[in-house]
Amino acid sequence: MFVFVHAFSSAQNVYFTRTGHIYFISQTDVIDIDANNNQVASFFDIETGKLQFAVLIKSFEFSLATAKEHFNESYMESDKYPKATFKGEINEVDEIDLKEPGIYQVDVKGSLTIRGITKIIEVPAEIEVRNNAINAKSEFVLAIADFNIKVPKVVQHRVAKQVMVNVNMDYAPYKK
Protein backbone atom coordinates (compact mmCIF):
# COMPACT_ATOMS: atom_id res chain seq x y z
CA MET A 1 0.00 0.00 0.00
CA PHE A 2 1.03 3.55 -0.58
CA VAL A 3 -0.25 5.75 2.19
CA PHE A 4 1.52 8.96 2.79
CA VAL A 5 -0.11 11.98 4.07
CA HIS A 6 -0.58 10.88 7.69
CA ALA A 7 3.11 11.06 8.33
CA PHE A 8 3.29 14.75 7.54
CA SER A 9 3.13 17.84 9.72
CA SER A 10 0.08 19.69 8.43
CA ALA A 11 -1.56 19.76 5.03
CA GLN A 12 -0.49 23.36 4.48
CA ASN A 13 3.15 22.41 4.33
CA VAL A 14 2.68 19.48 2.01
CA TYR A 15 3.42 19.54 -1.70
CA PHE A 16 2.79 16.71 -4.09
CA THR A 17 3.03 15.52 -7.66
CA ARG A 18 1.36 12.67 -9.52
CA THR A 19 3.41 13.21 -12.68
CA GLY A 20 6.96 13.23 -11.39
CA HIS A 21 9.68 12.12 -13.76
CA ILE A 22 12.29 9.42 -13.23
CA TYR A 23 14.74 8.50 -15.97
CA PHE A 24 17.44 5.89 -15.83
CA ILE A 25 20.11 4.71 -18.18
CA SER A 26 22.37 1.69 -18.34
CA GLN A 27 25.42 2.48 -20.44
CA THR A 28 27.84 -0.07 -21.83
CA ASP A 29 30.19 -0.13 -24.81
CA VAL A 30 27.66 -2.30 -26.60
CA ILE A 31 24.39 -0.50 -25.98
CA ASP A 32 22.66 2.18 -23.95
CA ILE A 33 19.32 1.21 -22.48
CA ASP A 34 17.14 3.91 -21.03
CA ALA A 35 13.62 4.32 -19.74
CA ASN A 36 11.44 6.98 -18.26
CA ASN A 37 8.40 7.22 -16.08
CA ASN A 38 6.19 10.30 -15.99
CA GLN A 39 3.73 9.01 -13.40
CA VAL A 40 5.79 9.07 -10.26
CA ALA A 41 3.82 9.96 -7.12
CA SER A 42 5.60 12.01 -4.50
CA PHE A 43 4.83 14.02 -1.38
CA PHE A 44 7.15 16.59 0.13
CA ASP A 45 6.68 18.24 3.52
CA ILE A 46 8.59 21.50 3.44
CA GLU A 47 8.32 21.93 7.22
CA THR A 48 9.92 18.64 8.21
CA GLY A 49 11.89 18.04 5.01
CA LYS A 50 10.35 14.60 4.67
CA LEU A 51 9.91 13.14 1.20
CA GLN A 52 8.10 10.09 -0.11
CA PHE A 53 8.16 8.63 -3.60
CA ALA A 54 6.38 5.71 -5.18
CA VAL A 55 6.69 4.41 -8.70
CA LEU A 56 5.08 1.55 -10.59
CA ILE A 57 7.73 -0.59 -12.23
CA LYS A 58 5.44 -1.43 -15.14
CA SER A 59 4.99 2.21 -16.07
CA PHE A 60 8.60 2.71 -17.13
CA GLU A 61 8.64 3.14 -20.91
CA PHE A 62 11.79 2.22 -22.80
CA SER A 63 13.31 3.77 -25.90
CA LEU A 64 13.85 0.19 -26.95
CA ALA A 65 10.41 -1.39 -26.70
CA THR A 66 11.66 -4.94 -26.30
CA ALA A 67 13.63 -3.93 -23.23
CA LYS A 68 10.47 -3.31 -21.25
CA GLU A 69 9.52 -6.96 -21.19
CA HIS A 70 12.92 -8.13 -20.02
CA PHE A 71 13.08 -5.39 -17.44
CA ASN A 72 9.73 -6.37 -15.94
CA GLU A 73 9.95 -10.12 -16.19
CA SER A 74 13.59 -11.05 -15.78
CA TYR A 75 15.13 -8.24 -13.78
CA MET A 76 12.50 -6.49 -11.69
CA GLU A 77 9.92 -9.31 -11.33
CA SER A 78 7.29 -6.59 -11.35
CA ASP A 79 4.35 -8.97 -10.87
CA LYS A 80 5.84 -9.84 -7.52
CA TYR A 81 7.25 -6.38 -6.72
CA PRO A 82 5.01 -3.89 -8.55
CA LYS A 83 6.33 -0.74 -6.84
CA ALA A 84 9.56 0.88 -5.86
CA THR A 85 9.43 3.38 -3.01
CA PHE A 86 11.64 5.89 -1.27
CA LYS A 87 11.08 7.49 2.11
CA GLY A 88 13.56 9.97 3.41
CA GLU A 89 14.38 13.44 4.51
CA ILE A 90 16.57 16.41 3.81
CA ASN A 91 19.63 16.48 6.06
CA GLU A 92 19.84 20.27 6.16
CA VAL A 93 16.20 20.84 7.14
CA ASP A 94 17.13 22.77 10.30
CA GLU A 95 19.43 25.12 8.42
CA ILE A 96 17.19 26.20 5.55
CA ASP A 97 13.67 27.55 5.24
CA LEU A 98 11.95 25.87 2.32
CA LYS A 99 9.11 28.36 2.54
CA GLU A 100 11.47 31.03 1.26
CA PRO A 101 11.87 31.19 -2.52
CA GLY A 102 15.36 30.22 -3.62
CA ILE A 103 17.57 27.41 -4.82
CA TYR A 104 18.91 25.04 -2.21
CA GLN A 105 21.59 22.38 -2.55
CA VAL A 106 20.80 19.60 -0.11
CA ASP A 107 21.42 15.95 0.67
CA VAL A 108 18.53 13.55 0.98
CA LYS A 109 18.88 10.40 3.04
CA GLY A 110 16.39 7.60 3.30
CA SER A 111 15.23 4.09 2.49
CA LEU A 112 14.96 3.00 -1.10
CA THR A 113 13.00 -0.19 -1.67
CA ILE A 114 13.32 -2.01 -4.98
CA ARG A 115 12.33 -5.66 -5.50
CA GLY A 116 11.41 -5.83 -1.84
CA ILE A 117 15.00 -5.01 -0.82
CA THR A 118 15.51 -1.86 1.23
CA LYS A 119 18.79 0.07 1.19
CA ILE A 120 19.70 3.32 2.88
CA ILE A 121 20.90 5.81 0.31
CA GLU A 122 22.11 9.39 0.54
CA VAL A 123 21.99 11.52 -2.58
CA PRO A 124 22.53 15.18 -3.48
CA ALA A 125 19.52 17.18 -4.65
CA GLU A 126 18.70 20.66 -5.82
CA ILE A 127 15.46 22.20 -4.63
CA GLU A 128 14.03 25.30 -6.22
CA VAL A 129 11.28 26.99 -4.24
CA ARG A 130 9.00 29.31 -6.19
CA ASN A 131 5.66 30.79 -5.31
CA ASN A 132 3.30 27.89 -4.80
CA ALA A 133 5.56 25.50 -6.69
CA ILE A 134 8.68 23.53 -5.93
CA ASN A 135 11.04 21.74 -8.27
CA ALA A 136 13.35 19.05 -6.93
CA LYS A 137 16.07 17.37 -8.95
CA SER A 138 18.55 14.67 -8.19
CA GLU A 139 20.95 12.47 -10.05
CA PHE A 140 22.66 9.44 -8.58
CA VAL A 141 23.98 6.01 -9.34
CA LEU A 142 22.59 2.69 -8.15
CA ALA A 143 24.42 -0.62 -8.20
CA ILE A 144 22.01 -3.24 -9.50
CA ALA A 145 23.65 -5.91 -7.36
CA ASP A 146 22.48 -4.02 -4.25
CA PHE A 147 18.94 -4.99 -5.18
CA ASN A 148 19.82 -8.54 -6.05
CA ILE A 149 19.15 -8.01 -9.75
CA LYS A 150 20.82 -10.85 -11.58
CA VAL A 151 21.93 -10.54 -15.16
CA PRO A 152 22.51 -13.73 -17.16
CA LYS A 153 26.15 -14.21 -18.20
CA VAL A 154 25.33 -14.12 -21.89
CA VAL A 155 24.08 -10.52 -21.70
CA GLN A 156 26.32 -9.18 -18.95
CA HIS A 157 28.27 -7.04 -21.40
CA ARG A 158 25.03 -5.29 -22.37
CA VAL A 159 23.79 -4.30 -18.93
CA ALA A 160 25.72 -1.83 -16.78
CA LYS A 161 26.50 -2.77 -13.18
CA GLN A 162 25.84 0.84 -12.23
CA VAL A 163 22.76 2.58 -13.48
CA MET A 164 22.39 6.33 -13.56
CA VAL A 165 19.09 7.62 -12.20
CA ASN A 166 17.70 11.08 -12.79
CA VAL A 167 14.78 12.40 -10.73
CA ASN A 168 12.84 15.57 -11.57
CA MET A 169 9.73 16.53 -9.61
CA ASP A 170 7.47 19.53 -10.11
CA TYR A 171 5.46 19.83 -6.94
CA ALA A 172 2.24 21.74 -6.38
CA PRO A 173 0.53 22.45 -3.05
CA TYR A 174 -1.44 19.49 -1.74
CA LYS A 175 -4.98 20.63 -1.13
CA LYS A 176 -7.93 18.35 -0.74
Binding site: I33, A65, H70, Y75, I114, V151, R158, V159
Partner: peptide, 18 residues
Amino acid sequence: MIIVILIALLQVFKPAQN
Protein backbone atom coordinates in the same frame (compact mmCIF):
# COMPACT_ATOMS: atom_id res chain seq x y z
CA MET B 1 17.10 -1.10 -11.35
CA ILE B 2 17.67 -2.36 -14.75
CA ILE B 3 17.69 -4.02 -17.81
CA VAL B 4 17.91 -5.92 -21.00
CA ILE B 5 18.67 -8.70 -23.23
CA LEU B 6 18.21 -9.67 -26.74
CA ILE B 7 21.05 -11.02 -28.61
CA ALA B 8 22.76 -8.28 -30.54
CA LEU B 9 21.87 -9.42 -34.00
CA LEU B 10 18.23 -9.80 -33.20
CA GLN B 11 17.88 -6.38 -31.75
CA VAL B 12 14.71 -4.97 -33.15
CA PHE B 13 13.83 -1.37 -32.61
CA LYS B 14 10.15 -1.98 -33.01
CA PRO B 15 7.77 0.71 -31.85
CA ALA B 16 5.59 0.16 -28.83
CA GLN B 17 2.37 -1.63 -29.66
CA ASN B 18 -0.35 0.71 -30.91
